[in-house]
């Protein structure tokens, strides 16, 4: 594989995988929490939270990227604050992961929320009469039952993160080895003469990874469903 892809191309693929994986894993707990809150809790500001979560889906990615730059950049309020603890997002791969996570978040939350809404609250009531507190009900009843939804959300989030371009390039630019993810690399190769071959190889990698992720999630979801159905 190393022979087939040039080091530069390989770097972009590896970085993209790293960025997308970190983005999905780091945002998953928040995704589950927000999805649960939106599906089950009634609280003031619920509508606002719903809008905020979905905002990256409808805003132009460049706008999201610029807002991230304003907030998490070196001069941004949050960026300056986090800088004191050595956490840097601007022009760093972690910034690419943050952008990817935020862009994938609405899709992840949507999938998980649908799964939570499909869980019969009567089962959760039954668990409470058997002595389970809210946290235990979530861990032992809700979570296992929404596992297929969580997997679907993770795959959607991963796919979105993997293909994220606009917000990433606006927020953290296009630095090879640092913030040049696969889409950015394809874009860069297309800007230089003779780069089409590299671009095409990366396109092929993107297609393979995306399809592999879909198959994996389908298989996992079916395995989980089989387990629940008791066969």
């Amino acid at each position: 594989m190393n022979d087939w892809l040039s080091p530069e191309e390989w770097q972009a693929v590896a970085l993209s995988l790293q960025v997308s994986t970190v983005a999905v894993l780091a945002s998953l707990p928040f995704g589950v929490l927000v999805a649960h809150a939106l599906a089950r809790w009634r609280f003031p500001g619920r509508g606002l939270l719903n809008v905020l979560v979905h905002l990256p889906l409808v805003l132009p990615p460049v706008v999201t990227g610029y807002l991230l730059l304003l907030t998490f950049g070196r001069r941004g309020a949050v960026g300056q604050f986090l800088d004191q603890f050595g956490i840097v997002f601007a022009f760093h791969w972690t910034g690419a992961a943050l952008a990817a996570a935020i862009m994938g978040f609405p899709l992840m939350v949507r999938a998980i929320r649908l799964a939570i809404e499909a869980v019969d609250p009567k089962l959760e009531q039954a668990a409470s009469t058997l002595g389970a507190s809210r946290i235990w009900i979530f861990a032992t009843i809700t979570l296992p039952l929404i596992l297929p939804g969580i997997l679907a959300g993770m795959v959607l989030g991963f796919a979105k993160a993997f293909g994220e371009f606009g917000a990433t390039i606006t927020f953290v630019s296009n630095i090879p080895g640092q913030t040049q993810t696969l889409p950015s690399a394809i874009y860069a190769f297309l800007q230089v003469p003779g780069g089409e071959a590299s671009a095409l190889r990366l396109v092929l990698v993107a297609v393979i990874i995306a399809m592999g992720a879909l198959f994996l999630s389908e298989w996992l979801a079916r395995a989980v469903a089989r387990r629940i159905a008791g066969h």
């Binding site: 089962l123 039954a126 668990a127 009469t129 058997l130 389970a132 629940i228």
Partner: peptide, 22 residues
């Protein structure tokens, strides 16, 4: 007192068994 601290055994009209558990 929340339900999980009441110690009431509740048998519902529909059994409400947990489908993912044996």
């Amino acid at each position: 007192l929340p339900p999980h601290r009441r110690g009431m055994g509740y048998v519902f009209q529909e059994a409400r068994l947990f489908p993912h558990l044996t």
